[in-house]
């Protein structure tokens, strides 16, 4: 069975690989696996308008799917705990070094209702001179009037930031 690979897969793979290595992340050394995922992301970009995780069912409503736009909000935790993110595009250093294998993992993402409930409980310290913004992808924090256009650590877009304090 020949895989159908989307046009632009090799270019996006090379770009993501470079970006990952520069920021201390690693793509799966199984290049075929990684490129299949990148191809799936491109299919989703065409279908929904954004690169939703190829291993999750997107709704097509960007607001509801922000947390699963690659890199997803759950990548860092899954890489740390299981050696890879949910789809297996990103893996940990110890997997790269061959010290650890990728373990099957449960879905960390909560159902929509629960995610919405959590969003409604921001902590506040009104005496802070600036609000604090947290990158949902990598946890980067900054204190300024608004979130940066792009996370300086993991390159996630401004829309992936949440008001932290």
């Amino acid at each position: 069975m020949k895989e159908i690979i989307e046009t632009g897969t090799d270019e996006l793979y090379a770009h993501l690989n470079k970006e990952a290595e520069e920021a201390g992340y690693h793509l799966n050394p199984d290049v075929e696996h990684a490129k299949n995922l990148v191809s799936g992301m491109l299919v989703n970009e065409k279908r929904y308008g954004y690169r939703a995780c190829p291993c999750r069912l997107a709704t097509g409503d960007k607001d509801d799917d922000l947390d699963i736009i690659c890199p997803c909000d759950y990548r860092d935790q899954d890489v740390e705990e299981y050696g890879a993110c949910y789809c297996g595009l990103y893996v940990s250093e110890s997997v790269i070094e061959g010290e650890k294998n990728v373990a099957p993992m449960p879905e960390r993402r909560k159902p929509l209702e629960e995610r919405k409930r959590r969003e409604q409980m921001p902590a506040t310290i009104s005496s802070l001179p600036f609000p604090m913004w947290r990158c949902r992808v990598c946890g980067y924090l900054c204190a300024r009037d608004g979130p940066p256009g792009v996370c300086p650590i993991c390159k996630a877009k401004a829309e992936r930031f949440e008001r932290f304090m």
Partner: peptide, 13 residues
């Protein structure tokens, strides 16, 4: 399965 999912492809295979 999902048509874009690599784990689904592996399971089907």
């Amino acid at each position: 399965a999902l048509s874009t999912c690599v784990w689904c492809k592996k399971t089907k295979k």
